[in-house]
Amino acid sequence: MIKLENVTAGYNNVEVIKNINIDFEESSITSIIGKNGCGKTTLLKTASNLLKPFSGKITIRGEDVLSISNKELAKKISYLPQHRPVPNITVYNLVMHGRYPYLGFSRTPRKKDKEIVEMAIEHMGLNNYINKNILELSGGERQKAYIAMILAQDTDIIFLDEPTTFLDINHQLEILEIIKNLKTMRKTIVMVLHDLNSALRCSDKVCLLEKGEIVICDTPQAVFESGIINEVFKIYSKQVLIGDGTGKQYEDTKQYVFYLK
């Protein structure tokens, strides 16, 4: 789907990620994990073409991203940053911004754009907030409004930078359910997650980064069993099964706990 070949990138001539080779598969969830400052966000920004790589090639279904115009690329890739200013606008207007790549010169939304925006708001359960100002929403509701904007952007590939950070546990779990639901809509999701338990539980693939390089990128079970997480984070980890013992809820109740060495 979206492929990075020998990509090296960073800021002010300082390499942050080095020689990255990865192929994010279609309709899958990939979580990027790693210690602070290992280059997770840089990888996300580079893959979404917000940061031009020093070297290497990024392709979407074989097409070089450099040959795609900004607006056309915005119809294929969406990106939700972790840190962003909160605009003083209504939920409806925020979600309508997601339609920007599809608007003509007059920037007037058509009937179809309005329908898509309304559907996205409904999908996120924000109907009651449609005319509310983003500033008045709680962190969790705000995050849902931004995801509604991403939905309205209607891209196949979605990059999310720490979508659950700073949210209470209820909203964290709700946002993760929403992300899993995006996969059923045939979206390719790549996200940076700090919460290793969530990353291992929700993803099809987990990529572990250390000092700007991919150490392992595999299924959560394989990554966990490799023990590399323990080495990189200098921790112990355990897989715990929570359930009634019948094994019926095995997949749903697999949890990971981590503790200091």
């Binding site: 979404s48 900004n70 690329l73 915005a74 606008i89 920007y100 790549p101 608007l103």
Partner: peptide, 20 residues
Amino acid sequence: SYDMNLLALGDESAKSLGLN
């Protein structure tokens, strides 16, 4: 002026929406 509205989202969000 509509393009200017997008700047309020922050540079990264505005860029990812296709705004130069």
